[in-house]
Amino acid sequence: MPADRTTGDVMKKFNADSLGEKVLRRFAGGTSRRGMLARVGAALVAAPVFPLLPVSRAEAAGKPDRSPETKTAFARAAQTSDDTKCNYWRYCAIDGALCTCCGGGIHTCPPGAEPSPVSWVGTCINPEDGKAYLIAYRDCCGKSFCNKCNCNGSDRETQIYTPQLNNDIIWCFGTQSMEYHCSTAVLVGAA
């Protein structure tokens, strides 16, 4: 999000936190202990909602000024040819082992792992066209930590009270097991 839009009309028009809270409240429904089915249901609902947050933010802002994103240290050094390197353009906010080094691919979980239907999100710049794209960092789950090609991108990454933009959380919600294996960087669309 551009630095010069931290306050004022943009924030009044759209507040990602407010939306996130509404989403989470909708998940809540009560205080009783939930079963796995309910969690899966919540996660499936969350899947299309969380990735839309920055899109909605961009729409609310009209034509977004993406120039600040293109100027981060990560964006200036990003490349498009090798997705096993931490400076691959989609990894601007990834944290963890790259599934491309673990027997999987950029949007593919390694054999035996299960993709999480929900994710944290990032907005990364493709250096080939200079445009911003929404990236869903979906964890692959159910196998022990791959521990290869560990990366820690931090562009626009936040803290756990803004969970949808935090990359330290184990995002294996709605999977058979929450054991973390590696992370993918799925291109959702233009941001």
Partner: peptide, 10 residues
């Protein structure tokens, strides 16, 4: 404070 642009560390 601004939780998305200038967050407080956890």
């Amino acid at each position: 404070f601004n939780a998305t642009n200038d967050p407080i560390f956890d």
